[in-house]
Write a protein that binds this DNA or RNA. Structure first.
Lengths: 130, 130
DNA sequence: CTACGTGTTAAAGTTCACTTCAAGTCAACG
DNA sequence: CGTTGACTTGAAGTGAACTTTAACACGTAG
């Protein structure tokens, strides 16, 4: 078999075929070769898609993901501009991780610690505690 | 001063006044007392809003945030249902933190490690390495 | 009194990230 | 040959989370 159909790639990645077409149009995925108009993907596409999925689930927008992917050395974005972007994004990721960890604590503590009332939680946050 | 105006709360929280009204309608914030139709907030609202902001920035939807807030002991949601919800959400947060950390590594390594080409990155992910 | 600034509402508009739809192509099966 | 199933396209639709708009209500400064 020379190439995976869009349905096969969809099955293997868990993304809908419509999403793969959408990502292709958005510049996140390369346009694959065709056999009578139909897309035929090389198995290597799965690595790229995994990358896209991780970026998306980390809160990158489609456009940010595109810049991340297209900013690789072989591509067009200048090093400096990329690094500015990456620096900003790293800070956002730190903030995200911080919020996620706080929420985990809150979910865990809600029923077995000080925060028995919503008001305790609010006060704790107002005082930067908890 | 007996109560903050919506503009003042907006200024202090960084949220738009329209967002505060939107959150109120969505059940994330209590409807405050009024002085000739205008909202007057107790300073305690700031704790609640902080809580909402953290939940939102951790990827909770507005509806999830509402459930989180309204699920507190004093309120209506049964313990068991809450705990199922919290458990599922904790797993999502773990996955989110994992993705965020992976992206941080990728952003850092892109220009100074093995992944000099997009293809290296894709291969690394395909092989679960990197 | 008028104008200004801040507030009010319901309803409509916007952006993002997809999904669904309508109408068609194509290879294979019976 | 017809039909089935997977694919194609561009365009329109969807849901979430806000924002903007239009029209109106106040208190106050000049």
């Amino acid at each position: 078999m020379l190439g995976l159909s869009i349905g096969e790639v969809a099955r293997r990645t868990g993304l809908a075929a419509s999403t793969l077409r959408f990502y292709e149009k958005a510049g996140l995925l390369p346009s694959p070769t065709r056999v009578s108009r139909q897309r035929r993907y090389d198995a290597a596409i799965l690595g790229r898609i995994k990358l896209v999925q991780i970026a998306r689930s980390a809160g990158f927008t489609v456009e940010e993901t595109r810049k991340f992917i297209s900013g690789f050395p072989a591509d067009t974005m200048p090093r400096v501009r990329w690094q500015a972007l990456a620096g900003r994004k790293r800070q956002e990721l730190d903030a995200l991780i911080d919020s996620a960890q706080k929420m985990k604590t809150l979910l865990a503590s809600k029923f077995d610690c000080r925060c028995r009332q919503l008001e305790d939680c609010e006060r704790a946050f107002a005082n930067k505690g908890c």
